[in-house]
């Protein structure tokens, strides 16, 4: 756990909110070790989600660098960022963000389908399906694969979202308030899943404002006034 998988340095991000420039990140820097479970804490609106989005190449900083496995991700072009989002990073969102037209298994397979062309899918699709079923089992949804998201409870939807994040076997799992929309008991279940994944070596960066949730992580950092404080 002493090998950095991700290093963010001096991240700045501002949003124009009407006439006012909202400076969300003001030189935030953080390093994530391989196999580590890091919790990023902070008050609502402190920029936790923005930081997570930048770490996962879903958003671009105004200033600063993010190195993933030693490679600076924002100097490599859009294709490399898309490739990173697809293969190296898995996102888990507070509001699950599952596609309502697809069933659970199809939602989980979506990143794998983005990864492969039609011909590639003909070669690798079977393996991807088998792995998706394994992940479903891992998150306890083996009997829910053919259900649509609106037929699932909140906890089940979040498990499905975790399974989707894992289907391409990413090196880094980024979870944005994964229990924020769930009751305490269900949230504990989700944390247990993350804990099990981390125990298997999965690196996790989790954003939360809940100290009890952050307690599950190996390490916690605070985002205060746009900077990381340990």
């Amino acid at each position: 756990m002493n090998e950095p998988i991700l290093t963010a340095t001096g991240l700045h991000k501002s949003y124009q909110m009407g006439p006012e420039l909202l400076r969300v990140l003001r030189g935030a820097s953080v390093t994530v070790q391989r196999g580590e479970w890091l919790a990023v804490m902070g008050a609502s609106g402190s920029g936790k989600s923005t930081l997570l989005h930048i770490l996962g190449a879903l958003d671009v900083p105004d200033e600063g660098t993010v190195r993933f496995n030693g490679e600076e991700i924002f100097s490599q072009g859009v294709r490399a960022q898309e490739r990173m989002r697809n293969r190296s990073v898995g996102f888990v969102f507070q509001f699950y963000h599952l596609l309502p037209e697809l069933n659970v298994l199809e939602n989980i397979l979506l990143p794998a389908m983005v990864r492969y062309s039609v011909l590639g899918w003909m070669r690798e699709g079977k393996g991807a399906r088998e792995y998706a079923r394994t992940v479903l089992e891992q998150v306890g949804l083996e009997r829910r694969g053919h259900h649509r998201p609106n037929e699932l409870s909140g906890g089940e939807r979040q498990r499905a979202a975790i399974a989707r994040a894992l289907v391409n076997q990413p090196e880094l799992l980024l979870a944005d308030e994964p229990t924020g929309n769930l009751d305490a008991k269900t949230g504990q279940g989700i944390l247990a899943v993350l804990q099990a994944l981390n125990a298997q070596g999965q690196t996790i960066v989790m954003v939360t404002h809940d100290p009890s949730v952050a307690d599950m992580a190996h390490r916690r950092v605070q985002l205060v006034e746009g900077r990381i404080k340990t």
Binding site: V78, R87, H97, R164
Partner: peptide, 16 residues
């Protein structure tokens, strides 16, 4: 719009 965001978040390109 949100579905498009989801698809892009898992690596789909604008062209895709």
């Amino acid at each position: 719009t949100r579905d498009i965001g989801i698809i892009k978040s898992v690596g789909a390109s604008p062209w895709g």
